[in-house]
Amino acid sequence: MSAHPSLDPSVVRWSVPAHERGDRPVLLLLHGYGSDEHDLFGLVPSLPPAFVVASVRAPLAPPWPMPGASWYPIEGLDGRDPDAVTLAARALLSWIQDAVGEAPVGLLGFSQGGAVALQTLRAAPYAVSFAVVLAGYAAGGELPGDIVLAERRPPVFWGRGAADDVIPPALVDATAQWLPVHSELSGRVYPGLTHSISQDELDDVRAFLDARLGEMAAQATT
Rank of each mutant, 00 (worst) to 15 (best):
S35Y: 05
E75T: 10
S183W: 10
A217P: 00
P65N: 09
L193K: 07
R21H: 00
R24M: 04
S10I: 01
L30Y: 00
G32T: 10
I197Y: 03
P67C: 13
T222F: 06
V11G: 09
W71E: 06
F41W: 12
W64C: 08
F130G: 06
V133K: 02
I96P: 10
G79I: 15
E184Q: 15
A3T: 06
S196K: 02
S186K: 12
L118D: 04
L209S: 05
L43C: 03
G113N: 02
S2R: 14
G136T: 06
P17H: 08
A123Y: 04
A50F: 01
D173L: 05
L29G: 03
P125Y: 10
S70Y: 00
T175P: 06
A115K: 04
A91I: 05
S129G: 07
A131H: 14
M66S: 13
H182T: 08
P82Q: 10
P17W: 09
D8P: 10
V156I: 11
P104G: 07
I96E: 12
A117M: 14
F41H: 09
A127Q: 15
A123P: 01
E142R: 14
V166P: 01
T194N: 12
R160K: 01
V53K: 13
S183R: 08
P82Y: 06
T222E: 13
E75F: 12
W178H: 15
W71Q: 11
R57A: 15
L185V: 08
A61P: 00
G109N: 03
L7F: 13
G192E: 06
G161D: 01
L108P: 03
S55D: 06
E201A: 01
G136Y: 07
V132K: 07
A150C: 09
S198H: 08
L118Y: 14
P9V: 10
V56A: 03
S198R: 12
D8V: 01
D98C: 00
P67Y: 09
D203L: 04
Q199W: 00
V12Q: 02
D83S: 12
L40A: 08
S198K: 07
Q119C: 08
